[in-house]
Design a protein around this nucleic acid. Sequence first.
DNA 1: GTTTATGCAAATTCTTTGCAATACT
DNA 2: AGTATTGCAAAGAATTTGCATAAAC
Lengths: 138, 138
Amino acid sequence: MDEAKSIEMLLEHGIRPTANRITMVKALALAEHPLTMTELEDLVDTIDKSNVFRALSLFREHHLVHVLQDGADAVRYELCHSHENGHDDDIHVHFYCERCGQTFCLNEIAVPRVALPEGYHLHTINYLIKGVCPKCRD
Amino acid sequence: MDEAKSIEMLLEHGIRPTANRITMVKALALAEHPLTMTELEDLVDTIDKSNVFRALSLFREHHLVHVLQDGADAVRYELCHSHENGHDDDIHVHFYCERCGQTFCLNEIAVPRVALPEGYHLHTINYLIKGVCPKCRD
DNA sequence: GTTTATGCAAATTCTTTGCAATACT
DNA sequence: AGTATTGCAAAGAATTTGCATAAAC
C-alpha cells in the first residue's frame, strides 16, 4: 500500500496521519496475515512498542483494524477492508493451522449468521477454524 | 457436579484423577461461564497456579476442556460436553457482552459450517459473537 | 522404588502506564 | 501557546519453567 492510500485510510477513520501511524498501516497492509502486536513491533522497529500499542488501540476504537485470536491464543490485528456503518462489515473466516501455526484470512468466505435468542444484540463475529492447512497436509 | 462424576470424566479422558484435578473439574462444571486460568485459580485457591496451568494443559491435550477467547482477548476454558471421536463435538456459539464483559455459552445454537477451500482440514471451530446481552440492553 | 504430581520461586513474555521531551496546528 | 504524539523506562499481568518435595501406583 502506498503512502497516499495509507493517509487516506487514516483520515477516513478520523485518525491524524502521523509518520508512525502511516508506517504501521503500511506494515499491516503488506502482511498477508493478521499480525500480533509483537510482530508489528518487529516490522516497524524504529517505533517504540508503547507507541505501537497506543496506535493499535486508537485504530481499534476507530475501526481501522479489528482483532482476532489465533488458535495459539495470541491476539492478532488486521486492517478492516470495509467499514460502512461503524461495524466491521468484512467479517470473514480465519483459519489457524495447528501444524505450522499460521493464521490465514479466508477473505472469500463470509461468516454464516445464526439466529440469536431474544434480546441479544450483535455487533461483530469472530469465526476461527482450527485445523491443518494445505501446505502442512502433504 | 459430584465427586464420582468428576472422576469418571477424568478417567474417560485418560487422566489420572488426583484430588486437585477433581477439584478443578468440579469448579469448571459449577461455573456457568467459561473461566480464565486466573478465575479458576481463585476458585481453587489452595492449588498453586503452576499446577492449575499444568492441569489445564493436560485437560486440553486430552480434550476434556476446550479453549476460547472472549471479546476482551482473554483465554477461557470450558468443559467439553461431548467428545465422541477425539474432536470437540459440542462446538457451540459463545456470546461476549461488550458492556458487562461476560461470556455466555449459547449451548442451544450450533456453529454453522462453511465450505472450506480444497486442502484445508477442519479440526474445530471457535464462533464468538460480540455485542450486548439482554441484561445490559435495558 | 519408580513414576507422576505438586508447590514454591523465579524467569519469560506480553501488555499497559507515567512522565518528560518533541512535534504538530 | 496549547494539544497531541512519541520514546524511554518501568510497572503490571499472565504464562511458563526448574527444581526439590511429596504422593500415587
